[in-house]
Each structure stands twice: as structure tokens, then as C-alpha cells.
Design a protein around this nucleic acid. Sequence first.
RNA 1: CGGGGAGUAGCUCAGGCUGGUAGAGUGUCUGCUUUGGGAGCAGAAAGUCGCAGGUUCGAAUCCUGUCUCCCCGACCA
Length: 424
Amino acid sequence: MKLSKYLINTLKESPKEATIISHKLLLRASMIKQHSSGIYIWLPLGFKVLKNIEKIIRENQEQIGCHELLMPTIQSADLWKKSGRYEDYGKEMLRIQDRHKNELLYGPTNEEVITDFFNDYVNSYKNLPKYLYHIQWKFRDEIRPRFGVMRGREFLMKDAYSFDLTKEDSFLTYKIFFKSYLKTFIDLGLQPIPVKAESGAIGGDLSHEFQILANTGESEIAYDSKLTSDNLLNLSFDEINSLYSASDDLIDKNKKDVVIGRGIEVGHIFYFGTKYSSPLKANVLTQEGKNVEVHMGSYGIGVSRLVGAVIEAYHDEKGITWPFKIAPFKINIIALEELIDNEEIKKLYLSLLKKYKDIIFDDRDISIGKKIKDSELIGIPWTIIAGKNFKEFNKLELVNRSNNQSITLSVSDLEKFDYEKNFY
RNA sequence: CGGGGAGUAGCUCAGGCUGGUAGAGUGUCUGCUUUGGGAGCAGAAAGUCGCAGGUUCGAAUCCUGUCUCCCCGACCA
């Protein structure tokens, strides 16, 4: 990608609407632009990050046999009246009328839609369990949106729904999702802490939220240090679930040997049994020919919130320090003006482009200093600089954004270098 | 919803008390000079001063209303 062709407009000063670091950096790096309170335009650079996060989430969902569909943003109020939530949800739900005066709403979540749909398509125990998810924009008319994309009114969420024959099966499913969530967040480069949770408006009797550790996190969390060990994924659900963790007011102050940190909630999972299958009549026939209500769970990840959360965990005084997989571009090539048309550098760019796809060549007609600043602000993992050393010795400088260390390499070294493995 | 603050150029802000028709930095554009850390010089474009009404010969400024945004609290992926 030649940067001169891209939409990028970095800011030296952060707009005053922003108070927390991720919000400031997202605005300064021209990744988002506020449209109105809690509603954002995702600019090309930010949208790429969002897509990269989606990709990792998708891979993990598919791994546990959870399949993607896409449900509407605008939903009919009828279903919500049946489940009883049309009244319960309160002012957070954005209610709309169409020209026929039918009541609609912009979906804050999708239990009703998917349960209703499921009932039409699945009628036998033979088809259970079923796991389905979608990644779709939601709207919750928060009293006070804040912190940029961390708490918007419109936000992108991955929500999965599970359908099982029995409570026992549904618990097994829950455990599968639980572990898949830990892996998802670890794949994203984050340190997840599962915390037993109140299940809130969605309801049910088994629930965990997933906090990720970040110094600037909104809630205080206390947890057993084993939760951050490298072999966390090798432990069973019961082993992990027996380890202590709590957030905010629920922290037991007398508890010893716990680590205190700060966290950002990025995921929430629930088992809620027949709360929706009962009113919306999602039944299947058992082996004995009996009609029974299915047991359900739902599993959410705040995708757009994660963009902010990752920055809270990955930044320094110069800007964002994206993990490799999430970074909008992986390598940025910067050359002195007189070297911009150099054949060898062009060849390097093309060969890296072939291998990594998301590569920038900063061909803008601006000073090299600003190019470096922009690269640091945006958080490109690797910056390759062709300067004096190239003219004299045919060497380029390779700078690692995570630790700001640089090494001097030749073009052929740079072509062979493993940028993903060597990051961090 | 309660409490606090703010709306003036893309962004950061001055001006407002004491009314006379809009300014700086930065960004943008043009030209020249530059090129290893957000370059220099010269020139230019850019604002119905959030909106509506009122007072006045005259309103960014005073008055009234209204909208929007931000911060603190209760609620949430």
C-alpha cells in the first residue's frame, strides 16, 4: 500500500473530547471519528484493526464448531413482547416505528431472534447441540457513553448462542465456550481473567465475565496468580474455575496471596436454560418422542471495545504498539526522498508485500521525521528505514515498535527476516 | 436522570467582563529551499462565532430559550 493513496490524517494534539489513552490515540492516529455521542465512523486504518480482531475471533469460534450467520440489526418488537423483555429492557433499547406504525427496535442483543429462528429449523434431539454466532452492530442507548469505542452506544459484538437438549449438555457447552474464550483472548495477545459474574438483564444462573489486564482498566480485579500462568489453557474448566478471582466491590479484602490489578471487561458468557426457549417455544423431540424445551447459553465478545482495550494494554508515550496480528499494517518502509524511486527498495517492498500483504510504503512528500512519528503513533510493528546507511553501505535500519530497538540489515536479510516470529 | 464544564477555521485555543462585524498556533493549498526525528521562507484558501429569538443604530460579546458535546455518579460487551 502506497501511503500517499491511503486515507490517513494524524493529529499532533488530541481532540478534547477524549480523556483516556486509547480514545486519544485512536483519534490521533485517524482510526475513528466521532459521529455523535457514542457513535463512531471507522476510518480505513481503524477498520482494518477491527477486521483483524474479528478474524481471530472467527477462527476460534469455528474451532469449537460454532458457525457464523448474520441476523438483522432492526428487529420486530413482537418477539420481545413474547419474551417479556420489551418492558424489562427499559430506556436502553432504541425503539423505532415504521411507516405502518409497527413497533421495531434496534437490537441490543439477539436471543429472541435466534431462538425464534431456531424453533423453525431444528426440531429433533438428533440435531443438538447447535452453536451459532454472528458479528453484528448492536445499539444500547447508554445513559452516558464514554471512553470512545470502549463504551459506545453503537458497538460491534460477537454473540454466540448454544442449544442443547439438557442442562447437563448445556453445561458442557458452557465449558467449551469458556475455554475457547480464554484462547481467543490469548490469541489476541491479551491476558484474560475469568470472573464469576452476575448475569444481569440477560438472566440465568451460570455466568462469567472475561476481564483483560490493562493498567488503565476501569475496574479493579483480584486474582490467583495461576490464572496468568503459561499453561492456563492446559487446565480444565473446573481447575480454572476453582481459582480465586473477583472484581470491584466483590473483592474479598481478607484474601491473601492474590494479585491485584486492573481489568477491562471484554467478554461475558451465560447459561440461561429455558428462559427464552420456553416463552418463544423452542422445542425439540427427544428420543422418546417427548417435546422438550432446549437449554440455551449466550456468549458475547465486545469486538469494537477490544480495539480500545488492546490499545489500553499496548501503548507507550509515542503511540500504539499493536500486537503483530492485530496491527493494521505489519511493516512500514520509509526512505529518504532521493531513495524513494530506488529499484532495490521497490523490489524489497514488492517482495514483502507478496509475503505479508499488509505493508506500507510511505511515499508521501513529507519529512522523514514526520513519517517516523506517524509510524510510531499508528503502531506499525516494524519500520524499515532506508537512509544514509543505504547510500553508503547498502544497509537499512529495521526498528521494532514493541521495544524501539533497531538493527541494521541488508535488503536480502530483510527479505528473509521473519517479521511475525521475531516480534516481541 | 442529578451535579459540573464547554460549543469561535480540520485540530488546540485566544477574544467575551467594557458591544463597533474575527484572531493565533497547528493542519491544508501554491512556490522555492530542505530531507534521520512532527523542517525553513514567502504567499493563499478556510469560520452564517452551535441554533432560534430578544435588546441595540450595531451582538461572538448582553438577555431568554433551545440543541449538542465532555467530565463525575447510578447502568453495561
